[in-house]
Design a protein around this nucleic acid. Structure first.
Length: 255
DNA sequence: ATGGTGGCCCGGCCA
């Protein structure tokens, strides 16, 4: 089974690339972030024609998350499942092929002294409480998406360039650590210990071609699921060519 | 080089 996650940076702008990528890789489950679409605009029928059930949570201009599955899609939830989604359209979940799958888009944070940084930490705390309320880490759980956190210094192109910056702060990494303590694992690190492999590169200043990126798109798996993983790859080819997203997809093969 | 590109959609905001 192939599980993938990709911040597409506007599904409207990226639909052709996404369809081409699905045709090439045939993921069984695909989490997407930053669709930047309202639910009514989400191309449910186009994905259904390819054999995918889907759930989308978006209000139009910002954020927006989706989940596609061709191995079943049961008990979908949108947002943190409260009556009003006061946390923005940043999480959607469903049970696919026996796995409780979450597609998440963690707030960027902008800067350590910005109010959005506090919002980012609050959102991560809400994610932790939501997971505790809604699922069991002894079962098959996947939390996939754009975390806007580089788990450690191997995951940024130059740690010195990020001193005092968001995405690498102790508080953000501790929030990720709370998810690990609950029972999730950054499955990339089960299969790779090298530095310098990234999933996001700024569009500006030729960062992609200069190798200036970060690994901030993560697949967190519960132990039972992580033990089934046979490979994890980041498809940097998807960052090349015409009209790419600024993020590359992460793919996890499960036996 | 304290910039730059690209998405939203048309004046800035967001990443």
């Amino acid at each position: 089974m192939l599980l993938a996650t990709w911040n597409v940076n506007s599904l409207t702008a990226r639909m052709e690339r996404v369809l081409g990528w699905i045709d090439e890789h045939h993921p069984d489950i695909l989490c997407m972030q930053e669709t930047k679409q309202a639910d009514a605009a989400f191309p449910t029928a186009a994905f259904a024609a390819l054999g995918y059930e889907s759930v989308h949570h978006g209000d139009g201009r910002w954020n927006g998350v989706a989940l596609l599955s061709r191995v079943g899609l049961e008990r979908p939830t949108r947002g943190f499942a409260s009556v009003e989604d006061e946390y923005g359209c940043r999480i959607v979940a469903a049970t696919c092929g026996g796995i409780r799958v979450h597609s998440v888009y963690v707030p960027n944070g902008r800067a350590l002294d910005h109010e959005q940084y506090g919002y980012k930490l609050a959102w991560l705390a809400r994610l932790a409480s939501f997971l505790t309320e809604s699922c069991d880490p002894s079962a098959d759980v996947a939390v996939c998406g754009d975390f806007n956190i580089a788990p450690d210094d191997r995951d940024v192109w130059d740690p010195a360039a990020f001193v005092g910056a968001t995405h690498v702060s102790e508080a953000e990494r501790q929030a990720l650590g709370a998810l690990f303590a609950w029972g999730l694992e950054d499955v990339w690190r089960r299969h790779h210990d090298e530095d310098g492999v990234f999933s996001w590169w700024d569009y500006r200043a030729g960062d992609f071609h200069q190798g200036r990126g970060m690994r901030i798109d993560l697949v967190l798996l519960s132990r039972s699921l992580a033990e089934r993983s046979t490979s994890v790859t980041i498809d940097r080819n998807a960052r090349k060519g015409k009209k790419p997203s600024d993020h590359a997809p992460v793919l996890v093969e499960l036996g």
